[in-house]
């Protein structure tokens, strides 16, 4: 299993952040929604550990990129929305910090309390919900960059596989071979 991680002091350069600003958020939102759904499917214990079925809306604010992420949990379903800015009133809790700090937290590379003590992350709102989320995510042993890389790989390989299927008789040959094996 390979490991990907952010350096502790990594900060998205301003020039990159500025270049991202005019881009539409929808493609990234679709990607993050799929990523979050995959993670919750693969790690159902996250929702069990959070232990709440009422609506919980977290605002995740990476301070060095020009968008924020709203994560909504309700009845075991996760929803992800990207926002240019978070509306203070619409989230139950909010976690802010550099993208690297937040990613290292999710990946279990950094300790949430240490990031809080050093003011690298700031939390406001429902602190019990934040702690439950943090503990549940830490217990799930998520490798978020690894999960993202796997999803990107799937998105690249899946259209290719479908295209190959349409242009060649590979699937029919596979089915015929399976039938042969079954008959034997």
């Amino acid at each position: 299993m390979f490991t990907l991680s952010f350096r502790r002091d990594f900060r998205v350069p301003d020039v990159v952040s500025s270049a991202l600003r005019p881009l539409p958020l929808l493609p990234l939102e679709i990607f993050l929604q799929q990523l979050a759904s995959n993670i919750v499917t693969r790690h159902p214990d996250i929702l069990t550990r959070i232990g709440r079925t009422d609506l919980l809306r977290f605002g995740i604010d990476p301070t060095d990129v020009p968008f924020a992420i709203e994560i909504e949990l309700r009845d075991g379903v996760v929803g992800v929305h990207l926002r240019r800015e978070l509306d203070e009133q619409s989230q139950h809790a909010r976690i802010s910090g550099t993208l690297a700090a937040l990613m290292r937290l999710v990946d279990g590379e950094a300790d949430g309390d240490a990031l809080f003590f050093s003011r690298e992350i700031v939390v406001t709102g429902d602190i019990a919900a934040v702690l439950a989320l943090r503990n549940a995510v830490d217990a799930a042993e998520i490798g978020i960059l690894r999960e993202a890389a796997a999803l990107i790989g799937l998105w690249i390989s899946e259209p290719g596989r479908l295209l190959r299927g349409m242009l060649t008789d590979e699937p029919r040959r596979e089915r015929r071979a399976q039938d042969e094996r079954f008959r034997q």
Binding site: D111, D113, N135
Partner: peptide, 10 residues
């Protein structure tokens, strides 16, 4: 016990 895997490891 309320701290993370990263704390425990270190």
């Amino acid at each position: 016990r309320q701290r993370s895997r990263a704390y425990t490891r270190a």
